[in-house]
């Protein structure tokens, strides 16, 4: 017993050594996201005549663990735009709540929510840029699809750094490597979106999803797809990749039937 009551009841320093108070920091650097935790993989998008299609699979991975298999990564905003999320799922949920509150506030005026997909993309890109500038990024790469102020189909990307770019077809994550070449072959720049039909665009994305399921280990054969036209949004969240063929696996040496 000593005369320092704050030390009573604590492990004796002369027995256990001085308490390492670095474990109980009240000051010091603030913890920010330095890496994502539960993540979604690629987001794919294609413009066609009169609209845009967006697709993601329904998987959220925890590292290499396929953690959640019914995750909806396509989010509708105000019935006119869709945001497809890749990257951290908790940050996606934060942004989803943010968009919900914006939509509610916009609807307080008598003309309703007037924000289009282009406005939404500008806003989200600025949110990402602000957060990266605070060294507290929202760990996502997103595609925003819908229409601009002139009612032209709109598709654009924004990422955790606030980088933005737009193209008639886009893909994030693994899709940037696997899906974009397929889409560029199917829909070369010279074609222009006026020659691409809704069905053709949907088929192209389904094929890309299949290729991604073959080759992206963090992907799933269950997916969501949203078709955005002036008539509205057709969102399907429980689709299945079809027509896979694993015959090619037989020819791969190194595992399975041919081990040498």
């Amino acid at each position: 017993m000593n005369h320092f009551p704050e030390a009573w009841g604590r492990p004796r320093d002369d027995v256990y050594g001085a308490y390492n108070s670095t474990y109980l920091q009240t000051s010091g650097p603030k913890a920010h996201t330095t890496s994502p935790a539960v993540t979604g993989t690629s987001v794919l998008g294609v413009k066609f005549k009169g609209g845009v299609v967006l697709a993601t699979d329904n998987l959220a991975s925890y590292g290499s663990l396929a953690r959640f298999t019914d995750v909806k990564r396509l989010r509708v905003f105000g019935g006119k735009a869709v945001v497809g999320f890749g990257g951290d799922v908790s940050d996606m949920q934060y942004i989803d709540r943010l968009l919900e509150s914006i939509d509610i506030r916009e609807n307080y005026s008598s003309h309703g929510n007037m924000l289009n997909a282009k406005n939404l993309h500008t806003y989200l890109a600025k949110v990402f840029y602000k957060r990266r500038s605070e060294f507290n990024p929202l760990w996502n790469h997103i595609l925003v699809a819908g229409f601009d102020a002139d009612d032209q189909p709109f598709l654009s990307s924004a990422d955790l750094l606030g980088t933005t770019f737009s193209s008639p077809h886009l893909a994030t994550g693994f899709g940037a490597h696997l899906a974009v070449p397929i889409l560029r072959r199917k829909f070369p720049d010279e074609r222009g979106i006026e020659t691409i039909s809704r069905e053709e665009a949907i088929e192209a994305l389904k094929e890309c999803l299949k290729v991604l399921f073959y080759r992206d280990a963090r992907s799933l054969d269950k997916y969501s797809i949203a078709v955005i036209t002036q008539e509205g949004i057709d969102l399907r969240e429980d689709e299945q990749i079809e027509g896979q063929s694993w015959a090619f696996a037989e020819t791969i040496r190194g595992y399975g039937s041919q081990t040498s």
């Binding site: 959220a60 959640f68 019914d70 995750v71 909806k72 990564r73 996606m92 949920q93 989803d96 709540r97």
Partner: peptide, 9 residues
């Protein structure tokens, strides 16, 4: 209702 930001069913 799904809670705001809910992702699974």
């Amino acid at each position: 209702l799904a809670v705001d930001g809910q992702v699974g069913t």
